[in-house]
Design a protein around this nucleic acid. Structure first.
Lengths: 235, 235
DNA sequence: GAGACCCCCTAACAGCGTTAGGGATGGCTA
DNA sequence: TAGCCATCCCTAACGCTGTTAGGGGGTCTC
C-alpha cells in the first residue's frame, strides 16, 4: 500500500499491483505477422489517417514503443500491409486460351483486392517503389502474360505501365470519390449553375460516376483494343 | 528597460521593444493569393510532407495561427494549391483538325504541369472530389474534345476517366518512382537474385523505367487506338 | 550461477494541426 | 470628434503524433 505513486496522467492513483500485466491477459506475444494483420484491420475499419502507432498498439494489447522492436518506422507498416493484401489473391498465371482474357482475369482480381482495401490503391503513388514479394509477383504475372502475347522491350514496358495505371488509377479514383447522394446532388447543381463555363460536364449531368465497374471494364476494353492493334501492326 | 520579461521559449530575454513588428518589415499583409503562392513554393521546394502550417507561416512572415483567418484547415491549402497549378496551363480548347491531336495536346500540357509540381499528381487520389474551377475547366476541355469526337453517355464517361487515370497515374508513378542509379542497380540485382520467381521481370532487366515520357506516349497511343476503334465500331 | 539476448515497458522529446482569446488598426456612423 | 465594429494578426496552449532513451524481467546458453 505504501507503494502507491501518483502518475501524471489524469492524476489518478495507480499501484504496481493494479498495473495490467500482459502475461495475465493471455495475449500472445508480438510478431511481425500479427502486427501486419492488425495494421490491415485498422486500415480497413478506420482508414489510413486513423492509423497511429498507439491505436495499433492498443489493438495488440501492447504499448506503442514496443512496435519499434519489430519495425523501424510507421511507413514500413504501410508498406508491409500493401504487400500483404497483394498476397491475398492466388498468384495464378496464364490459364486461358487468349492473352486478353488472362489480362482481364489478372486485373479483375487485382481490382477486387484494391476495392476490398480502399486505402491501398493510393499508397504506391505516394512512396518509393513497392518491391514487396507479393507485389512483384503480381507484376510478374501481368508482364509475363503480355510478354507471351508478343510484347517486348519498350512496348512491353509501356503496356505494363498503362495497365498498371488503369487498375490503380481507377481503384484509387473510385475510392477517393465515394460520395453520398447528397454530395452528388450538390455537385450537379454546381455544374448546372456554371453551365456556361462547363457546358459538356453539365450536359453529361455528372462528373463523378456511379458505375465505376462499367467505366473500368470499358476503359480496359479500349486499352486492350489498342494493345491488340499494336500486335496486329507488328505481326 | 524595466519591461523585459522572460519567455519560456529557450529562456532568452525578449522585450516588447525588440519584438519584431510586422509593419516595420515592409511585409505585405496576408491574402489568400499570397498564401497559395507560398504553399506551392513550399511544396515544390520541400515536398508535401514538409508542408507545415508553421513553416508556411514563417515564409510569409507571420505566425501559424494567423493562417486560420484565411483558411479553415490545412487540407484546404492543398486543395487550393492543386487547383492553382491546374490554372497554369492556358485553357485552350479544340484547335486542331483531329480530336486525337487535341487530346494529345491537352494531356501533354496537363502532364507537363504535373511533372513541374511532382507532389500534385498523388493528391486527388487521396481526397474527396476535386471541384476547383481550374480543375473542372481542364476536365471540361478534355470531355468536350471527346464529345466532339463522337463519344456520348457511358462511353464518354469511360473514355474520360481512362485518359484521366492515364495522365494522373503515369505522372504520379513517375514522381513516386524517381530513384537513383544506385537504387535501380540494387533493384535489378534483387530481381536477378530471384530470377526463378520473377523470370519475366528479370529478363526485362528493369521494373522501374527510365523512359517515362516514352511510356506515357506509347501508352496514350494504345488508349487512343482503342478509342478510335470504338468510334469506328459505332460509326 | 553468470551472462547474453530478446522483448516489452515507462518516460519523455520535438513537432504537428488547431482553438481560445486578446489587442491593435482603420473605416463608418452618430 | 467620439464611439463602435469589423478586420486581422498576435500569444498561449491543447491534445495528438512518430520516435528515442533507457530500464528490467524472462529465458536460453555456457
Amino acid at each position: 500500500m505504501a507503494d502507491k505513486r501518483e502518475r501524471r496522467d489524469g492524476g489518478e492513483l495507480r499501484s504496481v499491483w493494479l498495473r495490467p500485466r500482459r502475461t495475465s491477459k493471455e495475449e500472445p506475444p508480438l510478431s511481425l505477422a500479427r502486427i501486419v494483420v492488425a495494421v490491415i484491420a485498422v486500415l480497413d475499419e478506420e482508414g489510413i489517417e486513423r492509423l497511429t502507432m498507439r491505436r495499433l498498439a492498443e489493438r495488440l494489447g501492447v504499448m506503442a514503443p514496443s512496435l519499434y522492436w519489430h519495425v523501424d518506422t510507421k511507413d514500413d507498416l504501410i508498406d508491409l500491409a500493401v504487400d500483404a493484401i497483394f498476397g491475398e489473391q492466388s498468384p495464378r498465371g496464364q490459364g486461358s486460351l487468349h492473352w486478353r482474357e488472362d489480362v482481364i482475369a489478372v486485373l479483375s482480381a487485382w481490382r477486387a483486392t484494391l476495392l476490398r482495401h480502399p486505402w491501398a490503391a493510393a499508397v504506391p503513388a505516394r512512396r518509393r517503389p513497392a518491391i514487396g514479394p507479393n507485389f512483384l509477383a503480381q507484376m510478374e504475372i501481368l508482364q509475363a502474360t503480355l510478354a507471351s502475347a508478343g510484347f517486348t522491350g519498350v512496348r512491353l514496358s509501356a503496356a505494363t505501365w498503362a495497365l498498371y495505371n488503369h487498375v490503380m488509377g481507377s481503384a484509387s479514383t473510385e475510392s477517393a470519390l465515394q460520395i453520398t447522394d447528397e454530395e452528388r446532388r450538390v455537385g450537379q447543381e454546381l455544374l448546372r449553375a456554371h453551365r456556361d463555363r462547363y457546358p459538356t460536364l453539365a450536359a453529361q449531368g455528372y462528373l463523378y460516376d456511379d458505375d465505376w465497374d462499367g467505366s473500368f471494364t470499358t476503359g480496359l476494353t479500349y486499352l486492350l483494343d489498342g494493345l491488340q492493334a499494336q500486335l496486329d501492326r507488328t505481326a
